[in-house]
Nucleic acid binder design. Sequence first.
DNA 1: GTCATATTTGACGTTGACGTTAATGTCAAT
DNA 2: ATTGACATTAACGTCAACGTCAAATATGAC
Lengths: 149, 149
Amino acid sequence: MEKKTRFIYIDEVAERTGLTQRTLRFWEEKGLLPSPARSEGGIRMYSDADVSRVIRIRELRDLLGLSLSVIKEIMQVEDELTQVRLQAQQVKREEKLPYLRRSAVMLTTQIQFLGDRIARLQALQSSYAEQLACLRRHMTELEHTAAEQ
Amino acid sequence: MEKKTRFIYIDEVAERTGLTQRTLRFWEEKGLLPSPARSEGGIRMYSDADVSRVIRIRELRDLLGLSLSVIKEIMQVEDELTQVRLQAQQVKREEKLPYLRRSAVMLTTQIQFLGDRIARLQALQSSYAEQLACLRRHMTELEHTAAEQ
DNA sequence: GTCATATTTGACGTTGACGTTAATGTCAAT
DNA sequence: ATTGACATTAACGTCAACGTCAAATATGAC
């Protein structure tokens, strides 16, 4: 019972991810996406893994507003990490530990960065919330005086 | 004891905000910043209020990754809100309420937007945290087997 | 095989957000 | 009044992140 890897064309990837075909080719050209499988005639055949990678990159772009070059670095680190995981059995401990440490450091950095960003956003949000509360007080006040007339 | 409004030159604004003079002029040109006061010779004289506005815009850009045009809209709404507040006494209730309602709607929208963004970032963060935990387990495991040798 | 689509690469165009340079004016101090 | 440092506008340059168009294949249905 072999797992038939489903392949899809670039237009379906574009549809599923909400991007354009041009953007997908561009990201591939810039090294953010690995060159996908090709049909005999040279047409791009995307796997589900490819699609999820696209979605991850899109999230990094939209949520964090990062540039593609920064995203590329992040993805390279993530790739390295999964590489180390996959080669867990083949490589000796002494050679593996440094990689793991580096990955741990990178992950910690990312987590801190996100924590900081989240805190700032929450501060912004609560400032808005306060303004809204103040505004609501004004409004109810106005409605009361209007009712008295 | 009149409050002497301190004015500073554009280079000091640039220094305080971490932007360049060019960026400040550009933002002004694009309508994000109001034309500041000018000296007799036509040189820009910024007040503290101007500086805090710049900082607010910078936060919107850096934290949310918004485009300048979007930021411009947001700032216009905020300006409108403060206008309504300042004219609290002059305007009649019937004329003021619609403005307040619009501001309330805008604020609510912003708060929801931020809440959504924060939730997504937290999801991203916890996924990283999980990966890190997994990685740490691997590492301690490796150190143990290494100690046994 | 043929036809209608869809995909490929390549090249050039566009938009946003500034950087850079030049030519000229202003400020503050000596 | 002169000097040196900083400011002003205007114009052109740049870089990232795509859009658009064209000419040449590929694919899938008939």
